[in-house]
């Protein structure tokens, strides 16, 4: 495994106090500037793996080497729920990492990039689900973090909103090339977004496949209808099936 990876996990496992093995020992290295997806059915440990990388939970065994510093300029996290503070305006929510970390960043630019320029003074409850998620992503990127972790951020959205956000996220990543680890249970979403798809399987959670996705950037919506795209999805799907059968 390379030593210049953004994050390197060596023999990392997680067993919860209840005795549930959420993640069997895993080895994984993610190179900087890459867009990597973790795909698998529920219970496969993909969210646990993401939280381990974020240092929100500690591993039961193994070590994790992280190349970023702690704080907002090191890490951004997007949850499945927008997780906005309901008492604060969109601008205040997006500016939170800057105020906590004492770091500089441009709230207005982050809002503009996520198409929220006109909603800076709005409160979260005045926004649609898709807009709230945009605000959540704007908050995660406002301090330009080295590592962006996303835990099924679009799972609760309808397909139109989801495709729109996929396109925007990809454009954003192409412009900045942060390292992104993206958790999803949608194969199509993972293949469309990522350069590398890690396939996971449950009971116990483990990695059963590692697929390189080599489509040219920037990718466009038309890619979703190409044969190569469908083939790549089929490959990931096949690995998922093998993992479940094993």
């Amino acid at each position: 495994m390379s030593t210049d990876a953004a994050v390197t996990l060596s023999g990392v496992s997680k067993t919860f106090p209840s005795g549930t093995v959420a993640l069997a020992p895993v080895d994984l290295a993610i190179a900087p500037g890459r867009f990597v997806s973790l795909v698998g059915p529920s219970g496969c440990g993909k969210s646990t793996l993401l939280r381990l990388i974020a240092d929100l939970i500690v591993p039961s065994s193994g070590t994790i080497a992280r190349a970023w510093t702690s704080g907002p300029s090191g890490i951004g996290f997007v949850f499945q729920d927008p997780t906005l503070m309901p008492w604060a305006t969109v601008a205040d929510n997006v500016g939170l990492p800057l105020r906590i970390g004492g770091t500089t960043g441009d709230v207005n630019a982050a809002l503009a990039r996520m198409g929220l320029a006109d909603f800076a003074k709005a409160y979260p409850r005045e926004l649609s689900g898709g807009m709230r998620m945009r605000a959540s992503i704007a908050r995660a990127i406002v301090a330009a973090p080295a590592m962006l972790l996303m835990d099924e951020p679009f799972a609760a959205l309808d397909e139109f909103t989801r495709f729109g956000l996929n396109d925007d996220l990809l454009a954003l990543w192409n412009a900045h090339r942060w390292t992104v680890v993206f958790v999803t249970h949608s194969i199509r979403e993972a293949v469309f977004l990522s350069e590398r798809v890690i396939v996971m399987s449950p009971r116990p959670g483990r990695i059963v496949g590692d697929v390189a996705i080599q489509f040219d950037q920037p990718r466009t919506a038309a890619l979703r209808n190409s044969h190569a795209f469908v083939d790549a999805c089929a490959r990931v799907s096949g690995l998922l099936g093998e993992g479940l059968a094993a």
């Binding site: 929100l56 702690s70 996290f77 997780t83 970390g101």
Partner: peptide
């Protein structure tokens, strides 16, 4: 989740 976020941001 907000608690986690505050922790992440130190």
């Amino acid at each position: 989740n907000l608690r986690d976020l505050f922790r992440l941001y130190g």
